[in-house]
Write a protein that binds this DNA or RNA. Sequence first.
DNA 1: CATGAATGAGGCTTCATTCAT
DNA 2: CATGAATGAAGCCTCATTCAT
Lengths: 216, 216, 216, 216
Amino acid sequence: MQAPTDTKPRWERRKDARPQELLASALELFVDRGFAATRLEDVARAAGVSKGTLYLYFENKQELFKAVVRETIVQTIGQAESDAAAAEGMSSCELLRQMLRRWWTQVGATKAAGLTKLMMAESGNFPELAQFYNEEVIERGSALLTGILERGVARGEFRPVDPVMMTNVLIAPVMTLMMWKHSFFPCETHDTIDADAFMDTFLGLVQQGLAPQKNP
Amino acid sequence: MQAPTDTKPRWERRKDARPQELLASALELFVDRGFAATRLEDVARAAGVSKGTLYLYFENKQELFKAVVRETIVQTIGQAESDAAAAEGMSSCELLRQMLRRWWTQVGATKAAGLTKLMMAESGNFPELAQFYNEEVIERGSALLTGILERGVARGEFRPVDPVMMTNVLIAPVMTLMMWKHSFFPCETHDTIDADAFMDTFLGLVQQGLAPQKNP
Amino acid sequence: MQAPTDTKPRWERRKDARPQELLASALELFVDRGFAATRLEDVARAAGVSKGTLYLYFENKQELFKAVVRETIVQTIGQAESDAAAAEGMSSCELLRQMLRRWWTQVGATKAAGLTKLMMAESGNFPELAQFYNEEVIERGSALLTGILERGVARGEFRPVDPVMMTNVLIAPVMTLMMWKHSFFPCETHDTIDADAFMDTFLGLVQQGLAPQKNP
Amino acid sequence: MQAPTDTKPRWERRKDARPQELLASALELFVDRGFAATRLEDVARAAGVSKGTLYLYFENKQELFKAVVRETIVQTIGQAESDAAAAEGMSSCELLRQMLRRWWTQVGATKAAGLTKLMMAESGNFPELAQFYNEEVIERGSALLTGILERGVARGEFRPVDPVMMTNVLIAPVMTLMMWKHSFFPCETHDTIDADAFMDTFLGLVQQGLAPQKNP
DNA sequence: CATGAATGAGGCTTCATTCAT
DNA sequence: CATGAATGAAGCCTCATTCAT
């Protein structure tokens, strides 16, 4: 786990990079075409290796996919959890905005968003992947937002809402935007939607919609 | 040999019913498994016919899918367009709420919602279907909501917003909810989300979020 | 066998015409697409009847084909045989030219030529058809020409040649021209070849090539 | 493990040989059954491999067919073109006879002749193959003969004829003979025709038929 | 470690033939 | 006689996975 300086010969360091290159290619292709429609041969070729090499690093197609999710979304969630825990002083509204924005910039605006789209679509055909994604991504991500809402309501910063339900409402637009961005709809759709403007509109709605009623 | 009211022989009535039976089976399976993963043989068997029979009624898999969409979503949009055009007297807020609720009850809460999920996921792999869906569903549905928003802003019932952008924001939660409902995520998720409560929460947000500022 | 005046009601006379209409459609389609590639449904539709009706008149696809050949080529050969037998006084060279020309005008230049092309190509896949065609068409046609050659050699009108072998040589260009005419080769080929000019060129070659050497 | 002279492992040499083995099997079966009636699984099995292996070497059925034609007929035409260009000193009559004979021995008498038969029969159903064959075989082969005829007429070795038309006449018997040989007609036909005798008869006809008139 | 040839199950589509009406 | 819906075998092509080298 700790390579002191780098005693390995160069070609062996190349070997160590292989999994990363494969994961990058796999992410790209899974996002473009979905899980079932992605051919492992294309993943291998995009990474510059042969088809068989994939099986040296990943047991099969599903394990490859899990590894891609771990490298991207799961990692990001871990960071967000840490940061949220360390933001005691921040206002709940600001923290919530920050988390939603961060979710957008680090996941939604990147290729990783395609993985979410993909899971929504294909989880039914691959129960093992569904369970993995649910445990590692959905539950952890939801818990993070729900915690912030609870905090805000408790502190009187938000009007009283059901935190779990509101979490789902908050998640919704971002998820949809992610899927929108990664769906191939020709013509206007793609150009019409400006993600940043969308987020501004959405966050404005959140701020006004969650604000406690000033006078009863 | 003599059917009192229906003059057609039983066998011919069967033929008239076949397309509907096939469309029902196809809807079920497309929604469950997606477009690519649905096998036509399964659709046929579910309708109680053989593989070849499908091709007597639908040219190929893509045409079958289009027929399913026409029979469900496209038809519903047509009705909504008519009703909206006939609701001159209604307040824009009420009309908007009605349309969103109706979208949920007639599409979102039915199997048809799965078609939306499916298109988001697989349109990239089937450009012809993407174009069809875009023209027949997305553009028509969006235009309907945008029109109501424009009306509301013009009448001073809504605060000034960009109608096209806000249409996308309004669409988002319902779409996400539809996909959520039709994604196979085991364990808690499915039970947690109560669609009606979600819609109430959402519509409340809309009403408060779109209300014109009372000039403080 | 002898319908005195025509006592049948009109719709029944129509029924008698059915086989002819089917044979006409079948000829057209067999010639266009070959035996295997012709769909019986297309034959039926072209004749304005349903698929099942075909089976009332012809046991199966192969019997339909045989009937087409009988209606066209076999009939023509029968006439030629009669006429040749009755042409005792004519010079062998003239008789030969006449037969070859007639072969061209009554078979080669008509759709029936396509049947010859078809048999050459597909007889291997349909041995029963091959045998039928060989007996009814090839052997009878060859015998006719061979007889004329023998007559010409015997009378000193032709130089001494092997009549059977020369029959094959004479047959060859016409058969090839028939196939040429019924093969879909784009661009120049089709326009370049003028069948009549071809036959003139060919018959000139025959006349000079078969003529007895004047001086040893 | 150590192959003395050939440094490649046996397994890799196998790969190099595969396309040739597949082309040989394909030639055999295409010639026997035609293009449409040949099943790729049979081609594969005849070469001792599985169905899928074919697709490692040839994109699809049509490309396999093109490869077969290139490996046989197209190659032969190329050689003939070179040799004809290098035969300046030879008499036109001799050169023509040589080319026709060679066409027979290197194509007509081999399995490749079946490809010609096949194209005549099925080109209408496969336009892409028709175009390929027309460009690569028919036009090049015709041009070769036409050139020789033009040369002979110009030098006074042949009587004046239309070179293009006469090319078609010359082609005809050989083509027909090729098709004859590769058509499955049972009984006498096959035994009756002796190709060499046919060619002798034909070439005799050509020589006498093209000779300039001795001015009577 | 790496290769890439080979496999074979599986899915879409076609069409001759049957048969209930 | 006539219909046309229904069948099911068969063919083309794809791709995850294996394994000899």
